[in-house]
Design a protein around this nucleic acid. Structure first.
Lengths: 162, 162
DNA sequence: TATTGTTATACTCTATAACTATA
DNA sequence: TATAGTTATAGAGTATAACAATA
């Protein structure tokens, strides 16, 4: 409502989307070549690998990565079949499923990470000064936090109208 | 090679990817609801609408939006079937196809744009100060320009190894 | 020989709706 | 009644390779 975008903002928006699209394409390729995984699968594994207890519920795991429950179930099925994660019922809540990364999963992430970091360094950070990099971090943290507050209206699919 | 990512850079990278993923999801929905198009289709139309002569060759149109020739052919086929673009052989180069946006295409873009701008404003820019917005534009322009210089190794698929 | 674009095909991803089971 | 997760299925997107035509 109200507030149009300045032409300058439109250019910023386009530059952001194009940059990230290209970056996404580059890292997707790297992840596939180095680890035979899609980027989504890599994100899920990376999230598990960095989780405090190295296990999350399906819902926690989905958050911010996947936008439908069935999508996550599908990806988790593939990862489990590949032996990279393990699922077991949660003791706390019988409805929930706990997902844990396996040793093989950790190994896979380790195989991907160095090359991944090279790509991100080369594509995203190399044209930026140290100052720029810090600034970008601050900006995107603000944006991400703001977006997280917005009703994602997807994973927590609580249909109203339809 | 060399140069690892600082943990701070890793966070920046993640914040960027998550933000844009959510933004992409939001605009994708908006474009579909307001204009019955995918985001890629909207990008193609928008690119044509803002092109100086309102027509581009397939290769020019693909640039930065689509990463395979056949993908563009497919999308162009859909857009043409919907009457939003028109294709004709180029007079300059008999191999090339000129793609032009139709009146219906322009109308469709117009139908999408206001709501689109609202979403971008609300999701991306609203948490940022005017200063922040300018800074983001400068940063992403640098990044985009740098990435454009990198061999995209995709559209201009000049296979070497395989 | 290199480039533009299309075709055919196959694969992956994603989303919707219906369903089960537990809170 | 609401939530966690799965299943089945259908649709859309994308990429590879083989191809035709022009430069």
């Amino acid at each position: 409502m109200a507030d149009a975008l300045e032409p300058e903002q439109l250019e910023t928006y386009f530059a952001l989307m194009e940059s990230v699209s290209m970056l996404h394409h580059a890292v997707e390729q790297q992840v596939r070549e180095a680890g035979q995984l899609s980027y989504v699968q890599f994100q899920l594994l990376a999230r598990l690998a960095t989780a405090p207890t190295r296990q999350l519920t399906m819902t926690e795991l989905a958050d911010g990565v996947v936008y439908s429950r069935s999508g996550l179930t599908h990806q988790a099925g593939l990862l489990e079949k590949a032996g990279l994660i393990a699922r077991e019922p949660s003791p706390d809540d019988q409805r929930a499923t706990l997902v844990a990364i396996t040793e093989a999963g950790l190994t896979r992430v380790s195989a991907i990470l160095p090359g991944h970091i090279d790509v991100v360094q080369g594509q995203l950070f190399s044209p930026l000064s140290k100052q720029d990099q810090v600034a970008l971090g601050e900006l995107m943290t603000k944006v991400r936090d703001h977006m997280r507050e917005q009703p994602p209206r997807s994973v927590s699919t609580r249909k109203r109208g339809s």
